[in-house]
Design a protein around this nucleic acid. Structure first.
Lengths: 112, 112
DNA sequence: ATTCGTTATATATATACAAACATAACGAAA
DNA sequence: TTTCGTTATGTTTGTATATATATAACGAAT
């Protein structure tokens, strides 16, 4: 019966999206699987979409977020840089703080 | 060169959306024009979409947000209730506070 | 009664986006 | 030099959403 408040946050650089919830989810999956194609499967999006997202992330970021390799042992792979790992931690932290903040603000509407 | 943080917030009641930025924009336009059809035109959405949004708002809200009348002088119209007016003020307030909050949080990413 | 602009609603068309499919390039290892 | 699973990319297909169009119901004013 009560209202709930929800939010989505994202980070841009020069009109390009750097990070959002979906992109962070993808980066986490890359970190766990070591490969972009496996990561895409694990979060149920097409490889093409995953590739586009990762390409956009790396083009928007100040420093590389992943290192991708083609061919070789295992066919290649993708892994997060230290900067990439730090980014997802910071994003999650900000997101959680935002939820807490908004839950408090919601009282303004519930008291109307 | 710097990152920017953006957000969208919305309020739900029992899995139905009550308010979001688009819905608030529509309510403001209704308040200014006194009619749903004029409001739709003024914010460049189809009447059907506007009607669906307003219907959803009134179904989700605890109290009526608008009073709609069919026929009569001028063909009818729609106007906000006091509750509706209070809602859009509260929403805008929360939204602005959220922006300020997030701008501070962004430093966590800029310092990486 | 007729007129008028509105709310309310259904149906068909168009558009944007996601998924599916196909294929080339790659490079270490066998 | 052949194999392998991957990254990288284009093209086609499908689906969900928005738009466009059409029409009925309404009720105060003339």
């Amino acid at each position: 019966m009560d209202y709930k408040i929800k939010s989505r946050i994202w980070i841009e650089s020069e009109n390009n999206v750097l990070l959002g919830e979906g992109r962070v989810q993808l980066l986490k999956a890359i970190n766990e699987t070591g490969s972009l194609s496996k990561a895409a499967k694990s979060i149920h999006i097409s490889y093409k979409k995953a590739w586009g997202l990762l390409d956009s992330i790396n083009k928007s970021a100040k420093k590389p977020v992943t290192i991708n390799s083609i061919g070789g042992k295992g066919g290649g792979g993708a892994e997060l840089t230290d900067y990439g790992k730090a980014l997802i931690l910071a994003f999650d932290d900000i997101n959680k703080n935002c939820w807490k903040f908004l839950d408090k603000q919601l009282e303004k509407i519930e008291n109307l």
